Amino acid sequence: DNLVIALHSYEPSHDGDLGFEKGEQLRILEQSGEWWKAQSLTTGQEGFIPFNFVAKA
């Protein structure tokens, strides 16, 4: 599955970004460039995340 774990917390800075906490698990929905579309397994919310803040779970 496309699961990743957050290496750092991220505060959203643009509409459509997904904020998350360090250690949170996310499911990657789309990989494109440096911003990936993801869904939080904690909150169920979707949005874009910086790819370098996460690692394969």
Rank of each mutant, 00 (worst) to 15 (best):
D1Q: 10
N2T: 11
N2C: 14
L3P: 01
V4M: 12
I5D: 01
I5R: 06
A6Q: 01
A6K: 01
H8N: 08
H8Q: 14
H8Y: 15
H8C: 15
S9G: 09
S9P: 07
S9N: 10
Y10Q: 03
Y10E: 00
Y10L: 05
P12H: 05
P12L: 04
S13T: 14
S13M: 15
S13N: 11
S13R: 15
H14F: 10
D15E: 13
G16I: 06
D17C: 15
L18R: 01
K22I: 09
G23R: 02
G23K: 00
G23T: 02
Q25V: 15
Q25A: 10
L26N: 01
R27V: 10
R27K: 09
I28G: 01
I28F: 00
I28R: 01
I28T: 01
L29R: 03
E30P: 01
Q31H: 10
S32T: 13
S32E: 12
G33Y: 03
G33P: 03
G33T: 05
G33F: 04
G33C: 07
E34V: 14
E34P: 13
E34K: 14
E34M: 14
W36T: 06
W36N: 01
W36R: 04
W36S: 02
K37L: 15
K37W: 15
A38H: 01
A38V: 13
Q39Y: 11
S40R: 10
S40Q: 03
S40W: 02
S40M: 03
L41T: 07
L41M: 11
L41P: 04
T42P: 03
T42K: 15
T42V: 13
T42N: 09
T43W: 02
T43V: 01
T43L: 02
T43H: 03
T43M: 03
T43N: 07
Q45P: 01
Q45M: 11
E46A: 09
E46T: 15
E46Q: 12
G47V: 03
F48E: 03
I49P: 03
I49V: 08
P50I: 07
P50N: 06
P50G: 02
F51V: 08
F51D: 05
N52Y: 12
N52A: 10
F53P: 02
F53Q: 04
V54W: 04
V54H: 02
A55G: 09
A55W: 09
A55E: 12
A55H: 08
K56E: 10
A57S: 11
